[in-house]
Amino acid sequence: MSKERLLNHLYALGRLLAVVLTTFLGLLLVTFLIGRVVPIDPVLAVVGDKASPEVYERARIAMGLHLPLWKQFFIYLQNVLSGNLGTSVLTARPVLEDILRVFPATIELAVTGTFLGVIIGVPLGVLSAVYRGSIIDHITRVIGLFGYSLPIFWLGLMGLMILYANLDLLPGPGRVDMFYEDIVTPVTGLMLVDSLLAKEYDIFKNALSHLILPASLLGYYSMAYLSRMTRSFMIEQLRQEYIITARVKGVAEWKVVWGHALGNCAIPLITVIALSFGGLLEGSVLTETVFAWPGLGLYLTNSLLNADMNSVLGSTIVVGAIFLSINLFSDFLYKVMDPRAR
């Protein structure tokens, strides 16, 4: 019995690994091909347009671009798997190092955004499911609709114009005021955590005030999505018989709704929250550009505008890999949380 179970687990694990590896390989193939297809000459980007043909040719051979495509892909694969994403033309540093430096800023933003989205979106969704057709349901729907349809860069610019330029309630773009930059030594890379670790409470406050607007905007998008999903999950669960059972037992209505019904929604919600978090990482390109937030999105944008292909592809791989791991993680949580899937 236990041996059989172990085998089953191993089989499931093996299947999972196969899926993940295939997906990752596909991702690498796509990024590699994009790198070869774009009309940007990687050699020219390195040697500059004043180099002589001999120098150009030497650089081309040094970069392995004279080899057949499949050989190039093999070398690329070897490099990526050993953590070598190439060197950034823009910063003249290894791409991986660059990404590790800028990524925490994106994480900080996306985590805060998702957190806001969950703590507001889920309760709103529950309430609009319980009071279906009521005023709160309609308000949530309208707010959600705005969240879906307004482009984030427009909202970001509007927010900056009103709250920063006109009312001066919040600080402008960036992670901290210029004055505070580079004071805190990065430990985790997360400004809020690092400033607390360094006991620089003024910087913490400043970083928090910088974070509020972009995080709220991301949170707004996440909330719009989560409240709609929560609403439909809840409506489905509230129809179930076990809800009547709980009521027959005399259980208080708030426990029926927030305990029994939401408890059953928690499982599909995890997947949705994970997807929304992944979406925020992707969406960071626009937000970070508007707010001059020095994260992966801004790095990607800058690299793209400067034809720095190594950085662009490296960032793409990292975002893809993270998306993959988030999905993997949510699948794992699903298995842990749902007694029927164990």
Binding site: I244, A246, G250, G263, I267
Partner: peptide
Amino acid sequence: RQIRGEEISMVMQDPKYSLNPVR
């Protein structure tokens, strides 16, 4: 709610649906 469970209770048709699946 004081009466439900305490004074009057109900058993329903199918335990597959009338029990909370995640508890």
